[in-house]
Design a protein around this nucleic acid. Structure first.
Lengths: 189, 189, 189, 189
DNA sequence: AATGAATGAGCGTTCATTCAT
DNA sequence: TATGAATGAACGCTCATTCAT
């Protein structure tokens, strides 16, 4: 029942927003009463926190796997990571949208925990960029921090518009983004 | 008074969120009563819509100016546009954040109007990319739509994190992003 | 409307208890809605506080009048004060009962304010007892503090049981209590 | 387990009030679940009733012992009774406070039973007063009912303020109250 | 141009109680 | 003996909105 509640909440929070979704609506969807909700969660924020943590921890785990793959060089790791983010945002689209939109409603205590993990994710990517620079795979004079922000902007923003049922698959989008990031769009003269 | 109301609303909607800000709080800030609010706006959504339209129309106007500058080639126009977006998001940070976050609360009628202008903005950028391709400034085989999405992701995402008081100025960030977009981060062999 | 709300609340809080009385019940009695209640009071506790302060301030004012009456000696002042308390508890029986019973529900901030005034009332009485001792009207070796507590116990307790429609009027009860306090019930040998 | 429940309830009802204490809090304190509570009590009111009856029956038993002590005259019995009440209120302070404060929440059925015993206690004291009058120990013209009320006010009120850790022991307070009641505070001329 | 009083619907939350196991 | 899941009714409170003045 707890998992069911999480599932329908993800659906509703995505569709209507956290504040705009009432607990009544959540329990109605499951044919139970509000009391039942409070048997499983201490309050509405705890539910949101659960959704947030599930998502960021999933991302961090996937990221870890890529970083520890010794068979890949930095470029391949970057590609893998971009693909992973696009893929994850897409597979768990609703969670992703909640993750990016509903941070304010977490409440100070949970927020801190959450921000820490977000930062961890970004810093892991940044470290990969720096590694690539050191190893001579990427240009030397890059501003690793800003490059990382740029990459994350590109990929994260996909939560806003990307529809994998459209013309472009996640793989193709990965190719396009990786190509831009590595080689740019300039016509070399 | 109407403008004052818009101004404090921008401040509050940014700080607390649209739904989380009550009309009481808005009018308290101005030392008037709720009735006064309803003298100037038919409802809360109309106020939000006003804020949204102000922002997107400002962006569209700026964009227009760049597009019509015949002295610039496509690369220069792209640079100008990236700079303009970063700059605008930064100068009107609060409006920008409301613009990106509080779309859901516009209500179907206003939403449509708004989406149209957003799309217009994106399509204008896409047209610029396509122009660059045709003119041989950008590579031929680019997926203009996805490239545009990538550029917007990079730039728009800055509303999420960018702090111009930090190490990197808007000009520098523009340089970094333009460099990535045009030439990539790859170390050319 | 605010005064009306206070009035029916006094009635209901006395009859059912503070916690046991809902705001719905209060407003139903007046044919208005809950919103109206919150137009006049910031919360339920504020209403209770108002009732408490009204009562204790009324008592303090009456007490002051007696203390400043220079025509009376200590015995007469004591009699006057006992009569005043019995009279007040009786006239404002409902407020009195709320005052004695519903202290716990005041909330820390309001409680402090309230306790201060209660203490003031008691200390004023104690001072009268001490004065009587100094002036040779009361016995020398009295424990003024405990005597004061005893007097207040006698009189305040009347909120618990006294019914002026019964055999004994407030004046008669005053006589009885004063007689006990001054001369005791002992049969002098 | 049942007795444990009564004990923690006395503690909590005293600290927070009957209505303000939830059954959840009671069972949490014991590490059991709410179901367990309902195995031992049919409802919350029954628990309160148990506490009330325990206390008043304890008082009645003590009172009985005093009344049947043929070695004491009326004055001595009165002293013994005052001491017993002060002592009992003090030793069982929490129960006493619940007893005096939480009568309203007993529910009509239990209330009646309770009031009967309270009345019995008062009438027993009144009878003692009357006896003292008949035997010539107390003055003839006393209003026995009101005198009894006064005595009970003095002693019962101690639940409200008396702290035996302070300057005055229960024995001393008894002496003070008995002295007032028997001989008054007047300076005999 | 602005106020002040009031509404009405809804919300998050609490809690005594039930009952199958 | 005790648990764990669930109910259902109520509660304090908020808030966008209305409207006579």
């Amino acid at each position: 029942m707890k998992q069911k509640m999480i599932d329908v909440s993800i659906h509703l929070f995505d569709k209507k927003g956290f504040t705009e979704t009432s607990i009544q609506e959540i329990v109605d969807e499951l044919g139970v009463t509000k009391g039942t909700f409070y048997y499983y969660f201490t309050n509405k924020q705890e539910l949101l926190t659960t959704i947030h943590l599930n998502f960021i921890e999933f991302l961090l785990k996937k990221q870890e796997e890529i970083l520890q793959d010794e068979a890949k060089d930095s470029r391949e790791k970057l590609r893998a990571m971009i693909y992973m983010v696009l893929q994850s945002i897409n597979e768990r689209k609703k969670s992703a949208r909640i993750f990016f939109r509903e941070m304010r409603n977490l409440g100070p205590k949970y927020l801190e925990q959450n921000v820490e993990k977000r930062d961890q994710f970004r810093k892991n990517l940044q470290q990969l960029v720096e590694e690539g620079i050191h190893k001579g795979e990427f240009q030397e004079d890059l501003h690793a921090d800003m490059v990382t922000r740029g990459i994350l902007g590109m990929t994260n923003w996909s939560y806003y518009w990307y529809n994998p049922e459209g013309d472009v698959s996640a793989e193709e989008l990965t190719d396009i983004y990786v190509e831009i990031l590595l080689n740019g769009i300039n016509k070399s003269d």
